[in-house]
């Protein structure tokens, strides 16, 4: 089955992974800007990273027939440094017209601090000003519930923000309903230990339905599996779910969400 991985960090993956993804049916990916595993020392480091996301990765992906899209921001962890964050925010507009940029992301919270909250709000204002979609990271483990509630609080401060143009990512059993009930899209990340397993993600789909719900691998430099979305497809088939429902989750839903960006174009491979 053809699928889209709506959240994967290919700058941290090998070219062999691109080939594996293509062989597994991946036709498009979206790569949010994130924490590199260390704190960068200057805004210049982020400029170089944004060039990598908008020029280098699309070429690597294209070699394997995969469309590459991206989102720009300073991530929640480095957002603790407010001055650096504002320097990076000032760089972002010059990249927004690059042909593979879908919006602002993955912004969010990490340890749910005042500084992170201030920079989150400034990112949202930047997105609204430039009419961009938003992709949001929710915190890990014990911080997730509190951070998700804080994020929903802050988003509600912006009446001009269309919930249908925002995806709140890394939802789990205790956060998915509040995100969907507020009108946002929700993403489930399939991680071996710290987020959803494919089995639990399918449980959530069975519980809340498939509307406005996506799944991703969030493959990066840490413990993660870039082929996690095919694992979910396999789990859904084992449970006897309809192929049309599986396709909604792994292809139609991300395509519908991304299509709200002027830069997203992809044909259904089955219609070729």
């Amino acid at each position: 089955m053809y699928y889209i991985d709506p959240h994967i960090h290919m700058v941290s993956r090998t070219t062999d992974d691109y080939e594996t993804l293509a062989r597994m049916g991946c036709v498009a990916i979206s790569e949010p800007a994130f924490w590199a595993g260390y704190d960068r020392g200057s805004a210049g480091g982020f400029r170089d990273y944004f060039v990598q996301l908008t020029e280098v990765e699309p070429k690597r992906a294209a070699d394997y027939g995969i469309e590459h899209f991206t989102w720009l921001c300073i991530n929640a962890k480095e957002a603790e440094n407010v001055q650096l964050s504002r320097d990076v925010l000032s760089l972002i507009p010059e990249f927004l017209d690059c042909p593979n940029v879908l919006g602002i992301g993955e912004i969010g919270l990490n340890k749910n601090t005042p500084n992170e909250s201030v920079i989150f709000q400034e990112h949202v204002e930047l997105a609204i000003y430039h009419d961009q979609q938003i992709l949001i990271h929710t915190p890990h483990l014990e911080d997730k519930y509190q951070g998700t509630r804080m994020i929903l609080d802050m988003l509600a401060d912006h009446p001009r923000l269309e919930p249908s143009r925002v995806l709140v990512d890394h939802v789990e059993e205790h956060t998915v309903r509040e995100v969907l009930d507020a009108g946002y899209w929700a993403g489930m990340t399939l991680y071996p230990v710290t987020k959803c397993t494919p089995a639990r993600a399918v449980d959530i789909i069975e519980t809340v339905g498939a509307a406005r719900l996506c799944v991703n691998s969030a493959g990066d430099w840490g413990p993660s599996k870039p082929t996690a979305v095919p694992d979910l497809i396999f789990e859904m088939r084992k449970r006897g779910h309809r192929e049309s429902l599986i396709k909604d989750i792994v292809f139609n839903n991300p395509r519908t969400f991304f299509s709200q960006s002027k830069n997203f174009r992809i044909a259904d491979p089955e219609a070729r």
Binding site: L141, E142, Y145, H158, P159, H174
Partner: peptide
């Protein structure tokens, strides 16, 4: 029912609805 939800809540920090005032974070609308 909802054992997974209950376990997620068990391992979660509490949410304080007054968090914005404690952070002195202005409302932006």
């Amino acid at each position: 029912p909802q054992r997974a939800y209950q376990i997620q809540q068990l391992f979660s920090r509490q949410f304080d609805p007054q968090w914005k005032q404690k952070f002195n974070l202005p409302t932006r609308n």
